[in-house]
Simulated assay, not measured.
Amino acid sequence: MLTVTHAIVIAEAELIERFTRADGPGGQHVNRTESAVELRFDVASSPSLPDDVRARLLARRDRRMTDAGVLVIQARRFRDQARNRDDARERLAEIIREATVVAKKRVATKPTRASKERRLAGKNQRGATKRGRSRDWSRE
């Protein structure tokens, strides 16, 4: 069981783990052990997720999400399998926790008169600076 929040708990049967050989440091031993973890979680058909959380997860533009709605997390930060497994599960939980938060709706605002004037004054100042750098070729 992976506890994400007090309301969302994911069953072990929904998590698919695959272990592979990790790259990076570790000497000769790294060539024999499968310490990297690939964790797959089917967001699209998971009964553990509320519909609004599922919709927010699927709407995210995340390269880890496949077209079929499967979230794939690679964990190879540590040299032993158990720590990588815990790391992958914690990252999955964090992604789901982020999806439980509803983003505030943006309120459209208009720039104030003073801010428009400051912007135009800045543009005029910049233009004057650039004009001062140019040479007057008509006098030569």
Rank of each mutant, 00 (worst) to 15 (best):
Ala93Lys: 12
Gln81Ala: 10
Gln74Ala: 05
Gln81Glu: 15
Val72Glu: 00
Arg63Ala: 15
Ile73Arg: 12
Asp51Thr: 10
Ala75Asp: 01
Ala82His: 13
Arg76Cys: 10
Asp52His: 14
Arg63Glu: 07
Arg64Glu: 05
Arg56Gly: 07
Leu92Val: 07
Arg79Ile: 02
Leu49Lys: 02
Arg63Phe: 13
Phe78Pro: 00
Ile96Gln: 03
Ala55Lys: 09
Gln81Ser: 10
Arg77Trp: 13
Val70Asn: 05
Arg83Thr: 09
Ala75Phe: 09
Asp87Cys: 02
Leu71Pro: 08
Ala88Glu: 04
Arg64Pro: 12
Arg63Leu: 11
Leu57Glu: 01
Val70Cys: 05
Ala55Glu: 03
Gln81Trp: 09
Arg83Lys: 12
Leu92Tyr: 08
Gln81Thr: 08
Leu49Pro: 02
Ile96His: 08
Thr100Trp: 11
Leu92Asp: 14
Ile95Ala: 08
Arg61Ala: 09
Asp87Glu: 04
Leu71Gln: 06
Phe78Trp: 05
Arg89His: 06
Arg56Ser: 06
Asp86Gly: 13
Leu57Met: 14
Arg63Lys: 15
Ser48Trp: 12
Arg91Pro: 02
Arg91Glu: 12
Arg79Tyr: 13
Arg97Tyr: 15
Arg77Phe: 08
Phe78Asn: 00
Ala82Thr: 09
Arg89Ile: 01
Glu94Cys: 00
Met65Leu: 15
Ala68Phe: 08
Leu58Pro: 04
Ile73Trp: 11
Gln74Arg: 14
Arg56Gln: 06
Arg85Asn: 05
Arg77Gly: 03
Asp51Arg: 13
Val72His: 06
Arg64Met: 04
Asn84Arg: 01
Met65Gln: 00
Leu92Phe: 13
Gly69Lys: 11
Arg56Leu: 06
Arg89Tyr: 07
Gln74Gly: 07
Glu90Ile: 00
Arg91Val: 02
Ile95Phe: 05
Arg83Glu: 13
Met65His: 04
Val70Ser: 03
Leu92Ser: 07
Asp87Phe: 11
Arg79Pro: 01
Asp62Tyr: 08
Thr66Ser: 12
Ala75Asn: 01
Asp51His: 10
Ile96Gly: 04
Glu98Ser: 07
Arg85Ile: 06
Arg97Cys: 13
Asp51Val: 12
Leu49Gly: 01
Ile96Phe: 09
Ala93Ile: 05
Arg85Gly: 06
Asp87Arg: 00
Asp80His: 15
Asn84Ile: 02
Leu58Ile: 03
Asp80Gln: 14
Ala93Cys: 03
Arg54Ser: 04
Glu94Asn: 04
Gln74Asp: 12
Gly69Asp: 08
Ile73Glu: 00
Arg76Gln: 15
Arg89Asp: 07
Leu92Cys: 06
Asp86Met: 08
Val53Ser: 02
Val53Gln: 05
Arg60Met: 07
Arg64Asp: 03
Arg79Leu: 08
Asn84Phe: 09
Asp80Ser: 15
